[in-house]
Design a binder for these strands. Structure first.
Lengths: 192, 192
DNA sequence: GACCCGATCCTAGCACCGCTAGACAATCGA
DNA sequence: TCGATTGTCTAGCGGTGCTAGGATCGGGTC
């Protein structure tokens, strides 16, 4: 069985290589530049090899999205755990979220702008996505206010962050006031 | 000069036909289905005719976006003018915004998700886009609260609405709580 | 050690995309 | 009526995601 195990290991390595290369290429030149031909060339295999790992380009985007969700959840938890008190935690959370989106635009797109074929807000939602929402919920639930369901509050706060992230990056909001928008959002939405 | 005028008129009619057809096709089958070939076939001209009106597909998307901006501004003003008092106005505005996004997903995408080659938040931003923001500002400025710049408040509120609109439509938020999210957003963000 | 067979990979090609060069036809002004 | 100009079309370029089918390589068996 050792031979088969070795092959499976090598396959897993190659699959990670595909996802990492897709992500790298997307961050460098945008998702439009991530074509199956270029991706195949970069991993030094032919195009059809990609399709032995993924059903298509969409699934590759989905794999990058899941990887990103894990990282984002970790980044949010790291930021909030270093903050004292609800207010500081929420502010840190908001900054960390927008910072992640700004620093990893391609990954953020894979998660929330592109179609990676992933289910959201459902039972069959992949675990990393659920955990990403859970990371938001942990800090936001405590400032939802009386009589407001923590999950509902988290959805609204998340939507606001998502709007700021996407509109900012698309140049639809003036960049200079970014910090003041965050402060306003936290001050108004969170019950402290 | 009459001949030339007639030709110009006919050209203008055809240009409107292109934009209207692109919009229709996008609403029916999504923007992916709006290819230059299909569009040309629908208007019963050959592909190159499109390029005598627009530089490329991007500009066609931009034209649909501008058309949408005019309609959205009108829809927002109609909704707010029928409401009494700041609170009712802001609620009506939020509902009208989300309603427009839900009813015209392809137009909304052209405006805010796709690249239509339009400038935002700059001096050379096309008038319809500026006016769309102005329509938001008219109702939101009066609930910004003391010491908060109306434009900044409008940006934050708009971002929140945009986040709700996009996440809802992508199936990333449970659809059943849509109304409660709007109420929460208005209650918290607006100073009444 | 030789052979067979199955897994693995690549070449080549499909139908489609956005976009454009150049041929052709229709229309206008002289 | 003729030449020039304007307008439109056919055909084709290089690219896309994806796949069928042949070649090759390696492991298991005699």
């Amino acid at each position: 069985m050792s031979v088969q195990e070795r092959k499976e290991r090598e396959r897993a390595v190659r699959e990670r290589l595909i996802v990492a290369t897709a992500r790298e290429l997307a961050e460098q030149q945008g998702w439009d530049a991530v074509t199956t031909r270029r991706l195949a060339e970069r991993i030094e295999y032919s195009q059809p090899v990609l399709y032995s790992h993924f059903r298509g380009k969409r699934e590759i985007i989905g794999a990058v999205a899941l990887e990103g969700a894990v990282e984002m959840a970790a980044a949010l938890r790291a930021a909030t755990s270093a903050a004292d008190g609800p207010r500081a935690r929420v502010t840190a959370l908001a900054r960390a979220y927008l910072d992640f989106a700004a620093r990893n635009p391609a990954v953020y797109d894979a998660m929330f702008q592109l179609d990676g074929g992933l289910a959201f807000a459902q039972e069959d939602t992949p675990e990393p996505l659920k955990d990403g929402f859970a990371a938001l919920l942990e800090s936001l639930g405590e400032v939802a206010g009386d009589g407001v369901h923590p999950a509902l509050f988290t959805e609204v706060f998340w939507a606001a962050l998502h709007g700021l992230a996407t509109l900012s990056r698309a140049g639809r909001l003036p960049p200079e006031d970014a910090e003041r928008r965050v402060e306003l959002l936290v001050d108004r939405l969170a019950v402290l």
